[in-house]
Simulated scan of single mutants.
Amino acid sequence: MTRWLRHHQYALRVALRRLRQHPLSSLANIVVIALMLSVPILGASILQSSQPLARQLAVAPEITLFLAADTSTNQQEELLTRIQKQSGEQIAKTRLLPRDQAMAQLRSDPAWAQALDALGSNPLPDALIVTLKDSDTPAQQAQALADSWRQWPEVDHVQLDSEWVRRLESLLSFIKVGLGLLGIGVIVVVLATVFNTVRLQALTQRDEIAVARLVGATESFVRRPFLYLGALTGLAASLLALLLAWLSLTPLNTLLGQFAQSYGIHWAMHLPAWPDLLLSGALIILLGAVAARLSVTRHTQF
Rank of each mutant, 00 (worst) to 15 (best):
T2W: 10
R6I: 10
H8T: 10
H8L: 10
A11S: 12
A15P: 06
A15E: 05
A15N: 03
R17Y: 07
R18D: 13
L19T: 05
P23W: 04
S25L: 14
S25Y: 04
L27N: 00
A28Y: 06
I33C: 07
L35D: 04
L35W: 03
M36K: 02
S38T: 13
L42Y: 01
A44D: 00
I46T: 09
S49K: 03
L53S: 01
R55N: 03
Q56G: 00
A58D: 10
E62Y: 00
T64V: 15
L65G: 07
F66N: 09
F66G: 05
L67S: 01
S72K: 07
S72W: 00
T73A: 14
L79N: 01
L79H: 07
K85R: 13
S87Y: 12
E89K: 12
Q101L: 13
Q105F: 08
L106W: 09
R107F: 05
P110A: 07
A111T: 12
A115D: 07
A115V: 15
L119S: 06
N122L: 08
N122V: 10
P125I: 08
I129W: 01
L132Y: 01
D134S: 13
T137H: 14
A139M: 08
A142F: 03
A146K: 08
W149Q: 03
R150F: 01
R150Y: 04
D156I: 01
D156E: 14
Q159E: 14
R167L: 13
S173V: 08
I175P: 04
I175H: 00
G178T: 10
I184G: 10
G185E: 01
V186T: 12
V188C: 10
T193P: 06
T197E: 04
Q201R: 11
T204K: 11
Q205T: 09
E208P: 05
V211E: 02
A212T: 12
V215R: 02
G216S: 04
A217S: 08
A217W: 00
S220F: 13
R223K: 14
F226Y: 15
L227M: 11
L227A: 04
Y228V: 09
G230C: 08
A231Y: 06
A231M: 15
S238H: 01
L242E: 00
L242A: 11
L244V: 12
W246M: 11
W246K: 09
S248K: 03
P251L: 09
N253V: 04
N253S: 02
T254F: 10
L255Q: 14
G257A: 05
F259W: 15
Q261R: 14
S262M: 08
Y263F: 15
G264S: 05
G264V: 06
I265D: 03
W267I: 09
M269Q: 08
P275L: 00
L277V: 13
L277E: 01
L278Q: 06
S280T: 15
L283W: 10
I284F: 01
I284E: 01
A289N: 04
A291V: 04
A291Q: 03
V296T: 14
T297V: 13
Q301C: 07
F302A: 15
